[in-house]
């Protein structure tokens, strides 16, 4: 039996009058890749933001590694081991690549150099560009930097919000390969992705969301075979 890493229990979130999440529950187990699938505005980002403490949760609970982290401040959530790779390959664009990585290791100042080594090993391109200003990197490189910076904080759970957004197909598959490798190294991953096909192929388990609710859930392969899901999200004839 796999150990549970993250458990979201019936949370709801709203932006003023707009309800973005309504009674959403998900689970992530050890070593697992969990995909969140849904169209624009389904609430994927809102869910990740709520977990991260960036958005107030009105009802429900979020439990991470056995601790209740509902409505905890974001830096504490990050410190407890949740690493979010935010939407839109965000980097500190006026700082160098190296500085971006160093600042990512905020909670482990003693281990920055050893973490740096392992990040540079996984991303040789970042080592090559370590003294370049991050704002001048290409989109794909920025996404790698964003992932590398998250790894610097030694997360126990990786959450990626549309890591493929705005990138060329070749780069996208590269990014997914990187995430796959990271998962094989033991990182559980919670992935939010609009591209249902990609997300279902990639994940072990998946949740299909629409207008703030979870419509379907189950092993990704099963959902792929589900005719309703195929019809609504995979264009019917994939």
């Amino acid at each position: 039996m796999k150990k549970n890493v993250l458990r979201v229990e019936g949370i709801s979130v709203s932006y003023g009058p707009i309800q973005a999440l309504d009674d959403v529950s998900i689970e992530v187990d050890e070593g697992e890749i969990v995909s969140l699938v849904g169209a624009n505005g389904a609430g994927k980002t809102s869910l990740l933001r709520a977990i991260m403490g960036l958005q107030k949760v009105h009802t429900g609970r979020i439990v991470f590694m056995g601790n209740d982290i509902t409505n905890t401040s974001t830096d504490k959530v990050a410190g407890s081991g949740i690493g979010l790779i935010p939407e839109g390959h965000l980097v500190f664009s006026t700082m160098t690549v190296l500085e971006n990585l160093q600042v990512g290791g905020y909670h482990y100042p003693q281990e920055v150099s050893s973490s740096l080594e392992s990040v540079f090993e996984s991303f040789p391109v970042l080592y090559k560009r370590r003294n370049q200003i991050a704002g001048t990197l290409s989109g794909g490189e920025q996404q790698m930097l964003s992932i590398g910076r998250t790894l610097m904080s030694k997360p126990k759970l990786l959450m990626a919000d549309e890591p493929s957004l705005g990138l060329a197909p070749k780069v996208i598959s590269e990014i997914f390969n990187i995430l796959r490798d990271l998962n094989e190294k033991g990182y559980p991953i919670l992935l939010a992705e609009q591209n249902a096909k990609k997300a279902l192929e990639f994940g072990d388990h998946a949740y299909v969301m629409e207008t703030g609710r979870v419509l379907f859930q189950g092993p990704a392969k099963e959902l792929m075979g589900n005719p309703k899901v195929r019809h609504a999200y995979l264009g019917g004839n994939v």
Binding site: T74, D75, L84, F92, M95, Y106, R149, S153
Partner: peptide, 16 residues
Amino acid sequence: RALSENSVLASIIGIP
């Protein structure tokens, strides 16, 4: 400098 550039991103990576 990280905080001055983007406070939300800074908090996401764990800066108080």
